[in-house]
């Protein structure tokens, strides 16, 4: 009986620790700035959606959202296609000098280096190419980051699929690439999904490169746009909290929708 009580109490405590900060964000976003700073209420006494309306009418959050969706979609899609091919080559072919193994190790090494390390040269590169403050500059950068871990993740998924199936398809007249496309790729679909989900999360949430590479609503993504609300002197808490809700909502919704795949992707590699 006492273990049961302890379990219930622990569960409630953990839920409270995780959810109270989220509650405060949502509740603040429904208050007016006056209520937030002067009255310090624990829940919105006069709930209002003004803060949300203001984000889209005065602060261009429509553009930020569009930019985020476009940039995330293209950089994840390209990285998935390119990464799947690379991962397949590394998983299946034996090249001279074990080149495929070396490429895999090289990509993994790149993945370990914190992105902030190449922030300055990437900025200089995009500056010289005239790609600052553009979709293309962000898409190129994010695609490259995504490729490194897409290859690494998908390689292990391809290894789990028996080669016999491809060989059978090739005996039946498929080319090697045809066998990859028609047999292996569909079989690896759950793995590809886990990889895609992980890539979407990381890309949608990225801030550092968006901060350095974009400067106007033309290309600013959601996290970048949200950061513009943080003033030096006085803070517009109402807008900031509404922006936080808008920025977090799609990604939390998406994450809960694909929970199973997500957990698989997050914990993969660490176990085993």
């Amino acid at each position: 009986m006492s273990t049961r009580l302890a379990r219930i109490l622990t569960t409630i405590f953990v839920l409270a620790v995780v959810l109270l900060p989220i509650y405060w964000l949502v509740s603040t976003s429904l208050k007016s700035n006056r209520e937030i700073t002067q009255e310090g209420t624990l829940y919105p006494h006069l709930p209002t959606l003004d803060n949300y309306v203001r984000l889209f009418t005065e602060k261009q959050f429509g553009s930020y959202l569009t930019n985020s969706l476009v940039v995330t979609f293209f950089s994840v899609a390209i990285a998935l296609i390119v990464g799947a091919m690379g991962a397949y080559a590394i998983a299946r072919f034996r090249l001279p000098f074990a080149a495929e193994r070396k490429v895999g190790l090289f990509l993994l090494t790149l993945r370990i280096i914190p992105p902030v390390v190449i922030l300055i040269p990437v900025y200089l590169l995009m500056l010289s190419l005239g790609l600052l403050d553009s979709w293309l500059g962000l898409i190129a950068t994010y695609t490259a980051f995504n490729v490194t871990f897409c290859v690494w993740m998908m390689e292990s998924f391809f290894r789990e699929i028996p080669v016999d199936l491809e060989e059978a398809a090739m005996v039946d007249g498929d080319s090697r690439f045809g066998a990859f496309r028609r047999i292996t790729l569909p079989l690896a679909a759950p793995g590809l999904a886990a990889t895609a989900i992980f890539a979407v999360l990381v890309t949608f949430n990225e801030f550092l490169f968006a901060l350095a590479l974009t400067a106007t609503p033309r290309a600013m993504t959601m996290p970048r746009g949200t950061a513009t609300l943080i003033g030096r002197i006085d803070t517009d808490w109402a807008s900031m909290s509404a922006a936080g809700v808008i920025g977090a909502l799609p990604i939390v919704f998406f994450a809960l929708l694909v929970q199973r795949h997500l957990v698989r992707g997050l914990t993969m590699g660490a176990v085993k």
Binding site: L25, T28, L201, N205, M240, A248, L256, Q259
Partner: peptide
Amino acid sequence: LRTVLIIPMVVTPVVVAIVFRL
């Protein structure tokens, strides 16, 4: 519990920081 525990790590880090500023 497991579902709720997914939330903190998927929320955009910038938003997490806003939450804690609040």
